[in-house]
Design a protein around this nucleic acid. Structure first.
Lengths: 205, 205
DNA sequence: GTCTATAAATAGATAGAC
DNA sequence: GTCTATCTATTTATAGAC
């Protein structure tokens, strides 16, 4: 009986986890499409296919719901960083990260950041999980940036923090959406274009 | 009697215009701080110091209120473009424009664009005044971009539209706010940094 | 945990007196 | 045109049965 019960609980937990993953995936899509303020909890529930009250059993508030989605994205980023060959040149890894973030955005899975002073921002800043992930990612990228600057591959006159923010901003760059709406370029071409403007600038060389 | 009446009307109209300007200035600030969705009409009314109902005598809806603010920004941009010396090199004018948009943003007077599919976007697209202004600005900047590319000063391999969008995006670049929050740089330094990353990229040369 | 139904609060918009 | 007071719809959140 004991083994059956254990198996049963494990199965239930798996189902629970799967549902929460589905919720968060939906939230990430909506956050990417319309942002936190325009996204409604009704929408999320309807899109996932469960009742709103059920949603609130999983997450205590809209802010926590969005925060959980942001944490998931941050974890995904951490996994991506860890998947890169530690022996690879830092500059290559930075370019791979920039490219990856743009691809995630074009896939509609990159939530637009709450740059304004919103309630979500407060929740995020209070989230240990999110902040730890952000710190970890920033530390890793920061070390790569400094290494690339030391090698003379990144402009050493720029503060590392400015480079870091510039890369972060590319993950939410509206230019990608603009160009996609234009319909004149494929996703791959759009990524290449923004990679070029990000690293080489718009000046001629 | 006739002259008195005319003068009276003119004065009233001036007061009306002044009030509407004050409203729009407040709206621009709030749009810049929190975006369209998070901005409430109650806030606007309270900030201007008039009743909400009075606000609705001036503007028929929240969308129209925001649209009027965006039109004002667009007109301001048009005036700035016209203020530049027509004989100056196109590249110099483009840099002046980029710098100016960043300064406006740092001054808290640049509304964040409705990149998502929002009701505001529809209203803006339906606004002849806004769209005409946008077209005019885009045409002017586009011609300067092509001229700078022809002279080999801007990368001719980039589609002109990609350069245009890149410049537009700088006007709302979250990097400015990030760096400002960091508190390690003056506004002038921040503008210089982003000017550098925009035109020269983050690579070393 | 999931549901239906509902509460409580908020936001956009309007009525009507002055 | 400005105000107070109110309406209506929406939205976040919860109660309570199953």
């Amino acid at each position: 009986m004991a083994t059956t019960q254990v198996a049963k609980v494990s199965f239930k937990e798996q189902m629970l986890q799967a549902r929460e993953d589905a919720i968060i995936q939906t939230v990430n899509r909506l956050l990417s499409e319309k942002g936190f303020d325009a996204m409604t909890v009704d929408e999320v529930a309807a899109s996932v296919g469960i009742a709103k009250a059920s949603l609130y059993k999983h997450f205590p508030s809209k802010e926590d719901l969005a925060a959980a989605a942001m944490v998931k994205v941050m974890q995904r980023a951490q996994r991506f960083l860890q998947s890169l060959d530690p022996e690879a040149p830092p500059m290559d890894k930075l370019k791979a990260v920039a490219r990856w973030t743009m691809e995630v955005q074009l896939a509609g899975q990159m939530p637009s950041l709450p740059s304004q002073n919103s309630t979500l921002r407060n929740t995020l800043m209070a989230s240990r999980e999110y902040m730890d992930g952000l710190m970890d990612v920033s530390d890793t990228l920061g070390s790569w940036i400094e290494a690339a600057q030391a090698k003379g591959l990144l402009n050493p006159q720029l503060p590392a923090i400015a480079v870091l923010y510039t890369l972060y901003a590319r993950a939410c760059d509206p230019v990608l959406e603009f160009l996609k709406t234009g319909g004149q370029h494929t996703d791959a071409q759009i990524v290449d274009l923004v990679m070029s403007t990000c690293f080489d600038g718009i000046n001629a060389r």
